[in-house]
Simulated assay, not measured.
Amino acid sequence: MNTSPSLPLFPLHATLLPGAALNLRVFEPRYLDLVRECGRTGGSFGVCLILHGEEVGAPATPAAWGVEATVEDFDVGPDGVLVLRLRGTRRFHVMTTHVRDNGLVTADVQWCELDSDDELQPEHGLLATLLEHIIEQIGGEYAAAGPAQLDQAAWVGWRLAELLPLSETQRLQLLQENDPRRRLDRLLEWIPELDVPIEEDL
């Protein structure tokens, strides 16, 4: 793992995942300052799930694992609030946190190794089929996914983590797992408890 000092954090009641998109409304001065700073320096920031506290007001307590966010697009909503289109990239582990005078939380982090492009194992084949059914139903940006992506253990795991009705705590558990195949094992354990209507069609 590589260490990076002072990564600004944006704690949310949602878990950003590698490769996933997230729309984020930004209106608090500390986060507007963060966006300006990233635009000026070309830097990035991290998104972490809130363990204690709220998204506004006093600094919240973030989870010790998160994902780096890059800004793909931005707009201003009808109410004049800045809306960012984020994309999750690298996972990181928070080592220590600091709070700036304006209430912005920053962290010293260790960057996790990038996922390998291991092929899906036979015992995880059901998960690729499930993901394919979900994509067929919802369309969207993953509609063009081909066999090569559906055969990648890491890609299948992250897309299912994004699209299945998991709890944020479950998504956080997957973020802490370095092995793509172990993530798929966890998903196999959880699927019987989920309300997935298309499961009967598999």
Rank of each mutant, 00 (worst) to 15 (best):
V109P: 00
L9N: 00
E200P: 06
Q173A: 13
W158S: 08
T89M: 12
N178M: 14
P192M: 03
V47Q: 04
L17W: 01
L82K: 00
N2C: 12
A144D: 13
Q173E: 13
L49T: 04
E132I: 09
W155C: 14
G57P: 10
A144P: 04
E54W: 08
P62R: 03
G19Q: 09
W190K: 09
R85M: 05
L175S: 03
H52C: 12
H13R: 15
A64K: 12
R186A: 14
L32D: 06
W111V: 08
D73R: 00
A64N: 11
Q173S: 13
A161S: 13
E113Y: 05
G80F: 01
Q173Y: 12
S6W: 13
T70F: 11
R90A: 14
A143G: 05
D151H: 14
A21L: 11
Q137V: 10
G39I: 11
A161L: 11
L131P: 01
R159S: 07
L22E: 11
A60N: 03
T97M: 06
H133G: 09
L84E: 00
L49H: 07
A154D: 10
A154R: 05
D201C: 10
G42W: 07
N2K: 15
P62V: 10
I138C: 06
G139W: 10
D73C: 02
R87I: 15
E193I: 01
T129Q: 13
L51I: 08
L164C: 12
L17D: 06
R25K: 14
E119C: 14
C38W: 01
L202Q: 10
I50Y: 12
